[in-house]
Design a protein around this nucleic acid. Structure first.
Lengths: 205, 205
DNA sequence: AAAAAATTTAAACAAATGATTAAAATTATA
DNA sequence: TATAATTTTAATCATTTGTTTAAATTTTTT
């Protein structure tokens, strides 16, 4: 009988195995629905080891949440702040790199946004980075392109176009017989289209 | 007993009070984190009444989920299928009526999409309506406007632009000192902008 | 190789929680 | 009004679940 599904983890430390397993289960079921026994089973380890290495379920969750918040938000911000080039090129990079990241972590958005919903304080640590955005070169470039455009709406739009499909993923996958492409191909098509769509939207008065 | 026309929470039946309270708590905390005691407290009723009227927590949740799925998806589909008029006018109606609906039910999207994530079978009942969309007049009209445009992407886009901000709401509200407008005003601005943005996106080759 | 330290295990505990029960209170019926 | 049916209540039950404990095992140190 195989318990943990990831055989290549044999050589990882027990501590790491627990974190990896916890990340999988927490993302699939959320904090409340996850039992420490689920994590132990996913890791193929004894239940007590979770408390031995991480003290409590909540502490383990917070550690994972901190990492996922970084992946989700802190990866996004450098894209915005990156120097040089035109807005068009920046948008192209954002959509390509961000969607690629999400294709590797499809459960990430729902997990993070759900955690912020039930515990907004989680988000406090992120605000710092967000403040930089409004003074970024990109915002200035956009203002020049279209003085009427609001940067808040711009960021909502590019995040919405990139992220929302991943939150809808279970529904989209369920519609595979209706749709012309599967989820991954839909998203790869979006990598090409989102920059064009964003360019068109920015010019709207 | 015939009820008066001006029904208040006080006059509602115990059954209804439980459902209302459960909807509030389930949307705030999700299924697993919600204790039946939370629902009883929110309703101001004895704990045992929940099982008396609804048999089990899961059954009560399923009833509420069915209603919320309808509100979230089945309200959207008639907008798409509505006859006559130009695509521009239809998009204008969708964005106005759908965002207005969500402003009244801001927790709805995360709740529904989260439930589909952990239990995709919930979504099965919705597929029927979705099949109609691809043969709708709107899809034909869009094809005419731009033969290269994919209707899957169109629906992802309009849903993303309308719905995603509500999933980000706790984060957006947390940024209120950075943003020029509060959440509700941001969304009211979007009601005006989304039709223009969608029109611009549709024309992209 | 012996002792000490670290890790792992099986078992158990204590609190939380969904559900039930039987009696009390209320409302409807005859 | 008296009786029956329905609704509400307080108490309790049985299970689940996060955590702890103490012994067993493995690894490191001397």
């Amino acid at each position: 009988m195989e318990k943990g599904k990831y055989i290549q983890q044999k050589d990882l430390s027990t501590e790491q195995k627990i974190k990896d397993a916890a990340a999988i289960v927490f993302q699939k079921k959320g904090f409340a629905a996850t039992r420490t026994r689920d994590i132990a089973e996913e890791a193929g380890l004894n239940l007590a080891l979770i408390n031995y290495y991480y003290r409590s379920k909540k502490n383990l969750f917070d550690i994972i949440m901190e990492e996922k918040l970084s992946t989700f938000f802190r990866t996004f911000i450098p894209f915005i702040l990156s120097e040089g080039k035109t807005p068009e090129e920046k948008i192209k990079r954002i959509s390509k790199d961000y969607i690629s990241l999400l294709l590797e972590n499809p459960d990430l958005p729902l997990f993070v946004l759900n955690a912020i919903h039930t515990n907004p304080e989680h988000f406090t640590k992120i605000v710092y980075g967000a403040e930089q955005i409004q003074h970024s070169p990109l915002v200035a470039q956009l203002k020049k392109l279209n003085p009427k455009a609001k940067f808040e709406q711009f960021f909502l739009n590019i995040m919405a176009l990139c992220v929302f499909p991943f939150i809808m993923k279970p529904a989209i996958s369920h519609l595979s017989d209706i749709l012309s492409k599967d989820f991954e191909n839909l998203m790869k098509e979006r990598i090409e289209m989102i920059p064009k769509w964003m360019d068109a939207m920015i010019k709207v008065k």
